[in-house]
Amino acid sequence: MTANTITITSGKGGVGKTTATANLAVSLASLGQKVTCIDGDIGLRNLDVVLGLENRIVYDLVDIVEGRCRLRQAMIRDKRFEELYLIPAAQTRDKNAVSPTDMIKLANELRDDMDWIIIDSPAGIERGFRNAIAPADEVIVITNPDVSAVRDADRIIGIIEAEQKGPAKLIINRVNPQMIQRGDMMDADDVLELLAIKLIGIVPEDEHVIVSTNIGKPVALDEKSRAGLAFRNIARRLMGDEVPMMNLELKDDIFHRLSKMFGAGGE
């Protein structure tokens, strides 16, 4: 077994990288896969909290790189899955504590014992991002259907190509079907036309995501959550399953169709 190493990045901050990393990791683990996820955001540790593992941190990524601990000592095993691990970020301010070579070395050490290594990239295009993509076999770009996020996603897609890590794949996160229906949000086709890379998932806006972070239980474990279902579907697609995209359209009855025809376009 040799792990598939995936980096999740976005350019813009706050679009859902950490949420996606946590939920894809958990979804793959529940499919019986051996997964290690790595928080690549030095100084702004967050993957631990989303996974609910914040109390278990002893060593972190920088401790491994600087030789203060062995790799396995820093790997926190998830409470819910035997074969799901987290390597947390350091809370140091020195963004140069880790280099791309360090990341490649770390991934190589893990590769033979894992099915998946998922790296949560920080926002931006500097060192943290370069570190995160260095060991990647493939890169997933997350965006939201808004102007700033799509612009930054486009830039990052170009950089990923230039770094020979392309072609990237796309997840469109925080899609709001009501806003799309009103004409106040771009839909997936709009975003795809602009970014023109392969789409692997659409995740709807979902209040359950905030609740899940409140309690440290990733939303993919919540059967009631549509975002959770979307993440589980993406995990299945990563495994090679052809899962049709969720239908996010609102109920399609005659009244809806009429109001779409005459009401949309703003007042």
């Binding site: 808004d146 102007v147 799309i180 009103r182 004409g183 106040d184 949000m185 771009m186 839909d187 709009d190 036309e193 602009l194 005459f262 949309a264 376009g265 703003g266």
Partner: peptide, 11 residues
């Protein structure tokens, strides 16, 4: 409708 939605403007 002859109106441009904000989503169209964004695109």
């Amino acid at each position: 409708t002859g109106k441009t939605s904000s989503a169209d403007a964004a695109k």
